[in-house]
Design a protein around this nucleic acid. Structure first.
Length: 475
RNA sequence: GGCCCGUUGGAGAAGCGGUUUAACUCACUAGCCUUUCACGCUAGCAUGCGCGGGUUCGAAUCCCGCACGGGUCACCA
């Protein structure tokens, strides 16, 4: 049987890191086992659908590097791929279930349901199940929902790819609604029907869906459809061990936001793939192709994956290092422009900027932070730095260097470096005693980026001013 | 509360009854490199695999109980 997997987002929001993980693993599964990857839109929650939800999710799936074989924009003969366009299908199957006694019409109002529930709570019942008020009632001329009549004493058992043998008992499941009063199916019903009709072979999804599985199984069984193989992946949790919630402020939740911050799609792909999967490899930095090649359903982990921000930063850092300077600059330029950094500078200046900071860059937007830390601060000399300047010969060195710098015509990192060396020769200073005083004199600090490049970035005028100020302080 | 799932170092994770003195990666610490920082490189970092029993010549690995953590209980998906 051909492998066919699907990612089934609901357009109630944008592409979330957890959904992206589900999509990515289905994609890996399809590509690894040479199957089809299908994107099906589950838009049955009409009230919560957002206008640009579908568009945004598909766009960011693409950005991440996922491509699909079938979806709303690519028909593979199993469409439509959007549930609101399949309403007739679900209604037909729901009617059939009613006819065959698998389901029944429920006329209860929201208030009645709530009242019944309250009663159960008062009685201290542990299972708050629908009391089957409408089971066996004659048809009425009123809107109705359709409930699945859950069989008695039935065991729903399936072999989960990641969890192994999982068992649910029908007593624990209430007569759940398969068609809403609005004649729109509920998730579990539409999902089961579509998985069957679209010939989905494997369902890979988050563990939060595991309790939905028996409901979907009973629909499949009742309709005489084959069951797909299920695999429930552990949840992604935050540092507190809690499921990633969209309101969690400690972690960036949406793929779009990573894009906006200058993360690279390949890095994100790599990082997300490691959330619940461990490749049999000595190295964790792996390309999409390498991950597909190594992907094995058996290597999915069973315990929750902690979202490790530091690791994401590290992985993205590695991907940025693999960029050449032009590409890195392209990644950073929008953030610099937005911050108004280097507005009147030329290309050489930007090239210096990238070569100075690229190796410490974790994500694009960080360039602004790095730049400001070094250049956009008031010029004051740290205490220990000032002490260093008190050493013999420093003042003479700075004065010599000031003279050479002032006379310098071609202002580039190379010529600056030559000027430093020349000043060293003339004053007899070398090594640390040559570079450190100059570093302090122009930056006020004992640490910082490569000196000639840094000086090039600061600009001649400001350098001279700072040198003068420092010399004055010493004298 | 019912049901379902999980528990190996600060984090991810390998391990599938005997060359495991528990791989690998991030973080951390130290050293090296370097004019400084960063980058990079090298080394160190669990005497123990939630706890308690059991099976076995032998258990992180199999079984049972307990504890803790999480998920889920909608006419949401």
């Amino acid at each position: 049987m051909k492998v066919r997997v699907r990612y089934a987002p609901s357009p109630t929001g944008y592409l979330h890191i957890g959904n992206a993980r589900t999509a990515l693993f289905n994609y890996l599964f399809a590509r690894r086992y040479e199957g089809d990857f299908i994107v099906r839109i589950e838009d049955t929650d009409v009230a919560r659908n957002v206008d640009t939800g579908i568009e945004n999710q598909l766009a960011y799936l693409k950005w991440l590097g996922l491509d699909w074989d079938e979806s709303i924009d690519k028909d593979g003969g199993f469409g439509p791929y959007q549930q609101l366009e399949r309403l007739d299908l679900y209604r037909k199957f729901a009617d059939r279930l009613i006819e065959e006694g698998w389901a029944y019409k429920c006329y209860c109002t929201e208030e009645e349901l709530e009242a019944a529930r309250q009663k159960q709570i008062e009685r201290g019942e542990s299972r708050l199940h629908y009391p089957r008020t409408c089971l066996g009632k004659p048809d009425q001329d009123k809107p109705y929902a359709v409930r699945f009549k859950v069989p008695d004493e039935k065991v729903y058992r399936f072999n989960d790819i990641v969890k192994g043998d999982v068992t649910f008992r029908s007593e624990d499941i209430e007569d759940w609604v398969i068609m809403k009063k609005s004649r729109v199916p509920t998730y579990n019903f539409a999902c089961a029907v579509d998985d069957a009709l679209m010939e989905i072979s494997h369902v890979l999804r988050g563990e939060d869906h595991i309790t939905n599985t028996p409901k979907q199984l009973m629909v499949l069984d009742a309709l005489d459809f084959d069951r797909p193989v299920y695999g429930h992946m552990p949840l992604i949790v935050n540092e507190e061990g809690k499921k990633l919630s969209k309101r969690d402020g400690s972690i960036i939740q949406f793929i779009e936001q990573y894009h906006q911050r200058g993360f690279l799609p390949g890095a994100l792909f790599n990082f997300i793939a490691l959330l619940g999967f461990s490749p049999d490899a000595k190295e964790e930095i792996l390309s999409k192709e390498a991950i597909i090649e190594r992907f094995e359903a058996e290597r999915l982990s069973t315990s929750p994956a902690t979202f490790d921000n530091q690791k994401l930063l590290y992985i993205n850092h590695r991907y940025i290092q693999a960029l050449n300077d032009d590409e890195a600059l392209k990644l950073c330029r929008p953030f610099l422009d937005e911050a108004g950094i280097g507005e009147d500078r030329d290309d050489t200046w930007f090239n210096s900027l990238i070569s100075v900071f690229k190796d410490r860059l974790n994500y694009g937007a960080q360039i602004v932070e790095l730049y400001r830390d070094f250049f956009d601060r008031p010029f004051t000399i740290d205490e220990d730095a000032l002490e260093f300047l008190g050493q013999e010969g420093v003042q003479a060195l700075l004065e010599t260097f000031h003279g050479h710098l002032k006379a310098l015509d071609a202002f580039t990192p190379e010529t600056i470096k030559n000027t430093i060396k020349q000043s060293g020769k003339e004053t007899g200073m070398k090594g640390k005693m040559l570079f450190m005083p100059i570093r302090i004199a122009i930056s006020g600090q004992m640490h910082g980026p490569d000196l000639p490049r840094m000086m090039h970035l600061i600009g001649k005028e400001l350098l001279l001013k700072r040198l003068e100020k420092t010399i004055e302080k010493l004298g």
